[in-house]
Each structure stands twice: as C-alpha cells, then as structure tokens.
Design a protein around this nucleic acid. Structure first.
Lengths: 210, 210
DNA sequence: TGACAATGAATGAACGTTCATTCATTGTCC
DNA sequence: GGACAATGAATGAACGTTCATTCATTGTCA
C-alpha cells in the first residue's frame, strides 16, 4: 500500500536489473549467480525467470540500459553551456553513482563480454558510434573548433581521441582501491579532462604559464 | 632425438600457458574450463595440476607473463630512435600477434578481473606504474620535451594521457569484427598514435596544413 | 473462486579438482 | 649388453560442488 506502482511489471524488472548490476559489478557476469541476483533483489530465483527468459537476457537488458544511460549523459552534455563542461560531464558520468566503481567495473566487463559475443559487440559499437557522433557534432558547433584551434584535426578525429581517453580513464578507474570515494575519483577524472581539453582546444589562446 | 629440450619442465608450463591465453581470450577467465585448456594444449587435465596449483594460479601466471611482455615492449620502445617511434611501438604491441585480438581481449579481461580481485589489481597497477615511469623518463629525455613544446604539462602528465589513450584504443580494439586482420588493426592504431603525437609534441614545429 | 504473482526445492549438466593407474625412460647391477 | 628395478610424467574416470533452469505449490487480490 505504501508503494503505488503505476507499472508493476516494469518496477519488478527494474528491481531485478538494479540488483543485477550490483552483482555483475561485484562478481562479473558469469560469476554472479542467479541466486546472488535474487538475494540482492530480495525475490526468489524463480521470479527472475518470469521477467527474463534466461541469464543472457538479463545481461542483454543491462546492455540496453547502458545504452539508454549513455544517451542520457550525451543529452546532458549537449545542454552544457561550454565544450569543456560537456567533456566534464562525459568524463565523470560514471563516478557520481551511489556505489563507486560499480559503473566502471560494469563497462569494462561489458567490453570483455563484447570481445566474445558478436551480439554484445554490435550493441556496444552502436552505443559508441551514437555517442561519438554526438560529440563530433558538439565539437563542430563549438567556438573552439570554429576558431580553428584544433591542430588541423577533423572534429571526428578529435572525438575519437576524446573517447579513447575516456575509455582509458574508465579502465584506470577499476584499478583504484575500494576506499577511494566517488568524489576523489571525480576529482581525478576532472584533472585529466581539463588537461586534455587544454591540449585539444586551448593552447593558442593561453600559452603555458611557466 | 630430433628435439633437445633443455628445460622440459618449463616447456610444459609454456605449452599450457600458451593454450591458456587462447582459451582465456576466447571464453574469458571463468568461462574457459580446465578441460578447454587441456584440450587446447593437447594434454590431460590432470597434468595441468602438476604444473599449477589450481586455476587461479594459471591466471596468476598469465598475469606475470603479461608483466614480462610489457617490460619487453617498454625496453624496445626505449631503444627506438625517436619518441614517435617509441609511441608507435607501445601502441601497436598488441596487434602484431599471430591471433588478432587475443592480446587485447586478454588485457580487457585482466582489468575486469582486477576490478574484483585486489591481488590482480595490485599486479596490474604495478605493471602500469613501471611502464608509465619508463615513458615519463622517455619523454623527459626527448628533444620535444626539452624544447618546451609540451603545453606546460609535466612529462608524467603527458605519460598519463598517453597511457589513457593506449588503454582506450585497446578497449576499442575488442569491438573490431573478427575478420579484421592484425595489419588493419595496426594501421588504425598508428593513425591514432600519430594524431596524438602531433597533438602532444609537434604543433609548434609544424602548423596545421589547412 | 479464479487468475495471476511469487516461492524455493528439485534437477541435471558442467565445473574444478583428485588420484589410482599406466608406461616410456632412466638407472643399476651382473 | 641385457635383465630388472625405480621413477615420475601423463592419463582420464570419478567426486563433490555449484549453477542455471524448471515447476508443483502457495499466497494474494478482486
């Protein structure tokens, strides 16, 4: 009675997916058992099979969710007032969650899975392409690019570099000790973001201080 | 008589490890069974346990091997005649193998594993730090850095960016379709490497062509 | 009462690991 | 050299366990 679920079915699915990402990040896709997920979600094992055909379908649903989240981040980045702030949103999206490192571990796992499953690879490639197109567009429209301060590199080439750095930092993130808070991770990410940004766009306006 | 194995024991270990990396890259650490590895190596399951205490020890040995390989790559990079060539070696080390993508898939899996196992995380962190120190040193000694063409960034900051891009490109590599050859992967890597290099070091000597 | 949500014990396949056994190679003695 | 003993690398069936999946049963509303 305290909860008034407008879409009970969707709520249950969400509840299970929420538990799944925790278990997947903690143990990995294939070491996380369906019992782990059911325990984390506070439901029975059998119930998971009412909402998902099998374990693979849970992984697939998680990948879809990832797609939606990335598109959401991209939309927020698009609405930022400056290119630097857009990049900051893109680079720190994964470290403002309640559970630090969960997001990073999940994405690294997703890429690991993509290396074996063409289906997952297709999905991740698709997500990546959409996001990169978005950033390419963002760069094209930015004053920095219009002023020609881009070393003769095309927007899509800059975008490729930006995403390489973002992925690389995400990978770096999973090496950080558990004790590190989301705020500390975020600070570290921002440092690198700004360094990259000044390298890509800023040097002609503001020469080195030293 | 045709074969004169100086160290038969080491050969057996190598043979098993060689099979293990193939299986691990193909199925992942935890989906690759000991039976898979024994079949790939052409030996019995039991024999693996003569050379390794358990499956975790096989994974550990693979991680150690990775450490040696990285140090080897770093040594080759150190001996390159220019900084650009050093970077090219670092960025393409993983795509000159017989089996394309095997190396990349393994490393992504290693990071995924590191996100859960503090032991593996320690080892990867250690490897990474050693390699980054090497590149930092390489940059410090390079004429590019001495000429102050580094945007006011410290060598270690440049090194951090370089390794972020390298990891990011490695992650990108596992998304490539199986059909892509090692040579094609290599070409793609080199493209990005040169783009990054010109961004980091070259702009003051050679302005954009356009 | 009927329809559907939810449970969790049961199932069987697959896994890591063990170990009794085999057998080519090596060492030893006459 | 030839007969025999000793070795230990290599085998693979078997064991206990874990896991994804199923389904008979129970709970819950309208």
């Amino acid at each position: 009675m305290s909860q008034i679920p407008s879409e009970p079915v969707l709520d249950r699915r969400m509840q299970i997916l929420e538990a799944a990402i925790v278990c997947f990040a903690k143990h990995g896709f294939h070491q996380a058992s369906m019992h782990d997920i059911s325990a984390e979600a506070g439901v029975s094992v059998g119930l998971i099979y009412r909402y998902f055909a099998n374990k693979e379908a849970v992984i697939g649903a998680m990948a879809d969710r990832h797609k939606v989240e990335i598109q959401d981040v991209l939309e927020r980045a698009r609405q930022a007032p400056s290119l630097l702030e857009s990049l900051e949103i893109l680079f720190t999206a994964h470290c403002c969650e309640k559970a630090p490192k969960v997001q990073s571990a999940f994405v690294v796992d997703l890429y690991a899975e993509a290396s074996r499953s063409p289906q997952i690879a297709d999905l991740v490639r698709d997500v990546l392409q959409t996001a990169m197109d978005g950033v390419t567009d963002l760069i094209s429209r930015s004053p920095e690019a219009k002023n020609g301060a881009t070393h003769g590199l095309e927007p899509h080439e800059l975008s490729e570099l930006i995403f390489a750095v973002a992925r690389g930092m995400l990978m770096r993130d999973v090496l950080q000790p558990q004790e590190m808070t989301a705020a500390e991770r975020r600070a570290r990410q921002l440092e690198v973001t700004r360094r990259l940004w000044s390298l890509l766009f800023k040097h002609e306006y503001e020469p080195a201080l030293a």
